[in-house]
Design a binder for these strands. Structure first.
Lengths: 173, 173
DNA sequence: CACCACTAGTAGACAAGTCACCTAGATGCA
DNA sequence: TGCATCTAGGTGACTTGTCTACTAGTGGTG
């Protein structure tokens, strides 16, 4: 599945421990993928038994020993296969839109509150992404430009969401 | 979880069989939620044991008997609770952005092909949503306006995706 | 009349993801 | 010295979601 490929991708950028990976899932790639700790470690184990990843024990700098995971040639090939394969069409899942779809059950104040909470969420996303982009150094190669581009994608969708909320509230007024 | 609430919401609009629900998941609400047949039937069963939904056997018009599921008062209350509760913050999951993030592994042609496939997908979504909106009659009350608004949300995001692709391709050129 | 498509519902196995809990080393601080 | 916190790596139980296959009634077509 996708999580496996993402882990291969992260290890292609740099060797990492499960702990490192988890931190990346909670920060850098968080706006397009997240993963539970347990799942990360189990997926890593599966990748090792598949021979796509190799482990090297290294002494911990501040704490216990780390199990540094390195991508093997087979792992890099598998990553490439995924990148050029047909798009994984994942089912659209938007719980907020589901609420709006059934929001006829709500009175005006409740509806306004619902939309307002979504506006807040979108504003927060927008602010977070803007902050991340500002703190990111100018990209020097294509790989970095592409990673930055995923941020811009998030920004555009956040703005689209806010614009939609504006239009909807105007329409309902 | 969310699927339960969505089913409650659909039954609030009209009583339905599991089969009807599945068809709705494959058509009307498909652009923001989907569900497996097995999951629909099992969730319905759980809702019945919870007393949120009642079953009435009705003779099938064209085929076997149907089990028409009706929302109970408790079910409607549960639906309302969900609609006014804090937003279910679901983890962002975008497999395509994940690919772009790691697309430094690709050569120029492969990258172009990846972006082109996404453009195709976005264009298809846009066309589908436009078609649905055209075939939908003008909303007469607020509930209908809200259901239509979820379509507009999809349209805006599809357009945002296309605009982002344009900008990215220009930047990479 | 055999077959197919559509309607309607069910069961089992499995994959993916979440939650709670656990061990253990290193560091800092009260 | 005790305790909290961060680093590091797990395990087990559970929920959610997917895939495959099955029964069975109805209606149409070759």
């Amino acid at each position: 599945m996708v999580l496996q490929r993402i882990i291969l991708g992260m290890l292609a950028i740099a060797p990492m421990s499960g702990y490192d990976l988890k931190r990346h899932f909670d920060s850098t790639v968080n706006y397009f993928w997240s993963a539970d700790k347990a799942q990360v470690y189990r997926t890593l184990a599966a990748l090792v038994t598949e021979g796509l990843v190799e482990v090297r024990k290294v002494p911990g700098t501040a704490g216990p020993d780390r199990q540094e995971h390195h991508l093997t040639a087979a792992g890099r090939a598998r990553l490439h296969d995924w990148l050029v394969s047909d798009l994984d069409r994942q089912p659209e899942r938007n719980a907020f839109l589901a609420r709006v779809f059934f929001a006829g059950e709500l009175d005006s104040e409740e509806l306004t509150a619902l939309l307002e909470r979504q506006r807040e969420a979108a504003r927060t996303t927008l602010a977070t992404l803007k902050a991340v982009r500002k703190s990111t150094p100018e990209p020097t190669d294509r790989a970095e430009r592409l990673r930055l581009a995923t941020l811009d994608n998030g920004l555009r969708h956040a703005r689209a969401e806010l614009a939609w909320l504006d239009a909807l509230e105007k329409e309902l007024a």
